[in-house]
Design a protein around this nucleic acid. Structure first.
Lengths: 153, 153
DNA sequence: GTAGATTGGTTGCAATTGAAACCAAATATA
DNA sequence: TATATTTGGTTTCAATTGCAACCAATCTAC
């Protein structure tokens, strides 16, 4: 008769947590603006990097390449982002926010930042430190390190 | 020109982390046994509680009720779990592992436990403590507390 | 009791997803 | 230079998902 303590099992706790956080946050922008999680990630990445290719977004967000491809297509249709054909390599397109995109992202950003701020506000500063350090350590061993160390999935 | 530091944004880091961990773990059992994440959760919950209803699994795993419903159907077809009609309330069925289910889960469990153990082994004991405490704190404020405090989504 | 609301669970449907096949451009090998 | 391999990205297809409508059993209010 196999026992199992699911409630204390790390992978499970992580996934439940992330599901909850992502969904609560997605409520904020998916209603008011018509975008989903992949689009949000693309926008945020482009806001951070100013310009980059789809591949770079795939690597840094660890989202499936077809999901990013479709997100890019949708955002391009909506006029939030645009492609600058880099003449170096005609396979890849450099992406960047359009003025509309910047403006829209400018609206979403404070909402999302407020969400995270509210979350942090409910935690003790000790807990925040622990969480950040713990996540950082886990990222490191999973080679999810900050940005560039990421390999294609 | 909106800046945004996605790489340090908590919700994003959590989701990337959880995605990575869940997928690596799912590789372990989805190949050898023919089950997905929902099935795994149902099995683990039943192994922990011995008997419970689908509703209880929904609450404790925070997985959508239709997902659990379908998972239960699949596992029942495969003969891994069975329903005991509780004569109290004819809407709900008490679920439990069959002998086959127990045996199969008994095979999966050590693999999955090894996965978590290997993960922990790569972390310093300080990091483990931080991670656990941090996650616990976040669970608390999201009311993801252990088990019973969970409300229907 | 009976009408109405609630609850546990299922199902139909549309949307999202990931894997794999694919395409065109670029690079390596010959 | 021709050929093969790799690479960035798209698309097709099947599977999974979540929402909403639904069903049957229970509970509530009259």
């Amino acid at each position: 008769m196999p026992e199992f303590d699911l409630q204390n099992f790390l992978p499970f706790r992580l996934s439940r947590l992330s599901y909850e956080v992502s969904n609560r946050m997605a409520e904020i922008y998916s209603d008011q603006f018509d975008i989903g999680i992949p689009e949000w990630r693309i926008l945020a990445t482009l806001a951070a990097k100013k310009q980059c290719t789809a591949k770079a977004i795939v690597a840094s967000t660890r989202t499936h390449k077809s999901t990013i491809s479709r997100g890019v297509a949708r955002l391009t249709e909506n006029g939030w982002i645009e492609q600058i054909s880099s003449r170096q390599d005609k396979r890849q397109h450099l992406l960047q926010l359009t003025d509309t995109g910047k403006s829209k992202f400018g609206e979403i950003k404070p909402l999302v930042e407020k969400f995270e701020k509210d979350l942090r506000a409910k935690l003790s500063s000790e807990a925040i430190g622990q969480l950040t350090a713990g996540i950082g350590a886990l990222e490191k061993i999973l080679e999810l390190g900050s940005a560039e160390s990421l390999k294609e999935k």
